[in-house]
Design a protein around this nucleic acid. Structure first.
Length: 280
DNA sequence: AGCATTTGACCTGC
DNA sequence: GCAGGTCAAATGCT
């Protein structure tokens, strides 16, 4: 592949996805019964809209302002399926850059996550990563766990816990670019998330009491330093899970909609410089 | 200097 | 005792 940057790759993949969706729509129009065609067209239209938005956003952001942290600029071609290969306690400067994979930053779900832990999980050859909303300092209790799928290494199982109370309005737009493939943890089955409130059918299923759309306060400060250890010692006292039951608020397997989405999501989610949806 | 990231250590539940 | 989840010191980057 001659795609030199992650942005190029994402653009290429999104374009592929866009073409596939367009093709699907044509097929639906030609072959499906009216009802199915109607639903199918709505879905494909949504997919196309998402592709357009992502492409537009990336194109706009591809001009080089990408300034997450340095790591975002490095991992280029190595992002997707190579999960971070941690070496020693601290990666050596310089040398291992090619293998570097960003682990935090803007994710495909539009929220900004910060990694706070990593753990080797029994029976899984891939470690599990723990992320917390970057605005947890403001009391946002959302966390997520990311684990590379054992069966399908190119896919990542992501589980969300807790609720965003950080008022991330910008995330709404970004969220529209989420992959449509959703696993309902209760059903343990694939499906297309349809927002019961009439939102984007591409958005994952959320509990109805999910309060993601919270007050949009200015997240002006771009960084908050170390986690204000307000929760001090009781490490597992995180309450959101208790409030919401034992199952994650949202869980889905990224990579369920074919090569395009899978790859794109992997790129986006692991930090290959998704154009930042400005929170300010 | 300040903030982000890494990762070993610690905590908790089973 | 073990495994999963979290903390926080150490370290790197801007």
């Amino acid at each position: 592949m001659a795609l030199s940057t992650p942005t190029d790759v994402v653009l290429e993949l999104m374009t592929m996805g866009q073409q596939s969706a367009a093709h699907l729509r044509e097929l639906l129009m030609a072959a499906s019964p009216p009802m199915a065609a109607e639903h199918g067209q709505a879905l494909t239209a949504e997919i196309l809209r998402c592709c357009d938005r992502v492409i537009a956003a990336i194109s706009k952001g591809a001009t080089g302002t990408g300034k997450k942290r340095k790591v975002a600029d490095r991992g280029a071609a190595t992002c997707p399926s190579d999960l971070p290969l941690m070496s020693s306690k601290r990666r050596a400067r310089g040398g291992a850059e090619a293998d570097r994979v960003l682990e935090t930053g803007t994710a495909a779900d539009g929220f900004i996550w910060r990694k706070y832990g990593q753990k080797d999980i029994n029976g899984s050859k891939h470690p599990r990563f723990y992320y917390r909303c970057a605005y947890s300092g403001e009391g946002c209790g959302a966390t997520r766990r990311v684990q590379q799928s054992r069966d399908e290494p190119a896919a990542f199982v992501i589980a969300y816990y807790g609720e965003h109370t950080c008022g991330d309005g910008a995330a709404d737009g970004a969220r529209a670019a989420m992959p449509p493939a959703v696993v309902d943890p209760a059903l343990n089955a694939w499906g297309v998330g349809v927002d019961p409130n009439g939102g984007s059918p591409l958005l994952p299923l959320l509990h109805t009491n999910d309060t993601r759309h919270c007050h949009g306060e200015d997240p002006g400060e771009k960084s908050r330093g170390q986690w204000s250890s307000s929760s001090s010692s009781s490490s597992s006292s995180f309450s959101s899970e208790a409030e919401l039951g034992t199952s994650p608020v949202l869980e889905f397997l990224e990579g369920g909609l074919g090569v395009g989405w899978e790859s794109v999501v992997n790129y986006l989610d692991f930090g290959c410089d998704l154009p930042k949806f400005d929170r300010a």
